[in-house]
Design a protein around this nucleic acid. Sequence first.
DNA 1: GTATGCTTCAAACGCCCGTTTGAGCGTGCG
DNA 2: CGCACGCTCAAACGGGCGTTTGAAGCATAC
Lengths: 205, 205
Amino acid sequence: MNAPHFSTRQRILDSAEALFARHGFAGASLRQVTAAASVNLAAVNYHFGSKENLINEVFRRRLDELTTQRLQALAAVQARPDHGLDDVLDAFVRPALVLVPDEHGGAGFVRVLARAYAEHNEQLRKFMHDNYGPALRQFASAFAKLLPDLDKQELYWRLDIVSGALTYAMADFGMIKRRGISEQQHRDLAAEHLIKFAAAGLRAR
Amino acid sequence: MNAPHFSTRQRILDSAEALFARHGFAGASLRQVTAAASVNLAAVNYHFGSKENLINEVFRRRLDELTTQRLQALAAVQARPDHGLDDVLDAFVRPALVLVPDEHGGAGFVRVLARAYAEHNEQLRKFMHDNYGPALRQFASAFAKLLPDLDKQELYWRLDIVSGALTYAMADFGMIKRRGISEQQHRDLAAEHLIKFAAAGLRAR
DNA sequence: GTATGCTTCAAACGCCCGTTTGAGCGTGCG
DNA sequence: CGCACGCTCAAACGGGCGTTTGAAGCATAC
């Protein structure tokens, strides 16, 4: 499944991400993960200490990447003096598209992220809040500048709504089947619609 | 945990719903469920056949209720000739608030629903599509009448976004902590903000 | 060449899982 | 009464779980 020239550690992370996405954290066993990674069972505990810790590492790896890219995109947008709501939303949404697909048609990390929300695990939530929060606050202030009449509490509610819609749209949870398009196409379209929708939603009076 | 005068069947369903919400379908064991319900372990297989089937029954019970209430509310709204977008959205969102809380602070069925989305299980999805789909189509046509200029594909995308945001908001997945309010208050507020946001999003051009 | 330290390996640990079994229970009908 | 039926129960089934162990491999440094 994984090319043998990648490190054991990395192959475990890749397989774990794909299997957690498909079967959930409790539903995917270390035996499945290590088999998919062509790695000995004990390697997980050797490299990560425990399953719990492996889950955290799966997150850290991608969230760091996601946050970095978002903030980069935001900085680029804010450098342009005429930037609008759509641009900031794009900086928020677009990076989530990139780190998405795994090699075998799964939705990869975005779906893991959705799992994590659903888990409602306090530890995971704190971890996400710590790593996510500062970046989110930067976006909030970028939005606040573009929506000077919007109450701060109101803005935070709406950003939460955008995050939720983003997560669900990216993970392709919708009830409506859209035939003949790839997962990647689906997510591009979803991003497009989401940005338009969210821009109007944020401007609501 | 459950009053003893309820039937074994019902106590199992209640406990299962709460535990599936908290720990997921794979994460909550039948031993936990039956212990919480003060019921013999074998009772699950006696009354439901299998764990898989228990999960389905947990859904059927609430989804039937939810769909019925939504369609009732929609009918009431459509009876008024001057109804607007907010009213239809209210009919869609409000019933989700009602069937929410379990007795011990958990978020109950709404969180189970969010789990189901995250599971991405084909069988569950088909089940939801079959039971959900017709009602969703009724709402779609109610929205379409109020948004005559909106392309049909576009509308479906936006309704998917609304569903995602609704699920996410109801299950209280947000990153932002809001102190000093109960789960119920949180959901009332979430519904209010969601409706305002979604109405504007649906009207986006 | 041998000692060192990181990594991999097969095997085993005890535990919990979903499910099945067959005996036991109470109720109500013939 | 007796017997059938719906339900509950404790116990056991095989199997999969996360984790631990100690030996084996294999480079690098001395």
